[in-house]
Nucleic acid binder design. Structure first.
Length: 150
DNA sequence: GCCAACGTTGGC
DNA sequence: GCCAACGTTGGC
C-alpha cells in the first residue's frame, strides 16, 4: 500500500464534484515526474486530494485507486488541449488511473498547517516552487497529515 | 549538450 | 493580477 497526493484547482474539479461523481479518471497530467507517480499507483493505494489556488489551499479529502494504469484517453483526442501526437495506443505516454471518492475532511488541512508538520519538512509538497502535481508520500508523512484531521 | 526564451504553476 | 520558480522548447 502506497500513499500519494494529487493536486487540482477546485475551479477545474473539486472534491465536491468527485463526491457527486464517486470516481474520476485523473487525466490531463502532462508532466513526466507526475506521470511517473501516476504510473506507479496500484489498486487500493490512497491519494490525498489537494486543492490549489483555493481559499485556503490545502488537503480537502482522500481518494482510493480504483483502477490503476489506465491510458489517459485525451492524449489520442485531436480536439483536446491534452492531445499528444507522439503518443500511441500500443504504448501510451500518459497514464490516468481511476480514483474513487473516499472521504471529505471536515476541515481543510491548509498549507500553513502542512508547513507546521515537522514530518513533512522534506516532502516535495513543501519544497520551494511546489509545482509537482502528483507527489508520493511516505507512510509517516501520510499519517502525520491524517492525524491533523482527527 | 548548453542555455535563453518562453509558458505554466501556484501562493499571495 | 503579480511574480518567483520551475519545466519545456528550440537554436546553435
Amino acid at each position: 500500500m502506497k500513499y500519494y497526493l494529487a493536486k487540482c484547482e477546485p475551479e477545474a474539479y473539486s472534491i465536491d464534484d468527485l463526491k457527486v461523481d464517486m470516481s474520476t479518471q485523473w487525466d490531463g497530467v502532462r508532466n513526466y515526474q507526475a506521470r511517473n507517480n501516476l504510473r506507479e499507483m496500484e489498486k487500493g493505494d490512497i491519494v490525498l486530494f489537494y486543492q490549489s489556488n483555493a481559499e485556503p489551499s490545502g488537503i480537502v479529502g482522500s481518494m482510493e485507486v480504483a483502477e490503476a494504469k489506465l491510458p489517459d484517453t485525451l492524449q489520442f483526442d485531436k480536439r483536446s488541449e491534452y492531445y499528444d501526437p507522439k503518443a500511441t495506443k500500443e504504448s501510451p505516454t500518459w497514464i490516468a488511473p481511476r480514483l474513487k471518492f473516499k472521504q471529505k475532511f471536515k476541515e481543510v488541512v491548509s498549507l500553513d498547517e502542512l508547513r507546521s508538520l515537522k514530518k513533512l519538512a522534506s516532502s516535495a509538497l513543501l519544497r520551494k516552487g511546489n509545482r509537482l502535481s502528483v507527489i508520493s508520500l511516505t507512510k509517516e508523512e501520510y499519517e502525520a497529515i491524517v492525524e491533523v484531521t482527527k
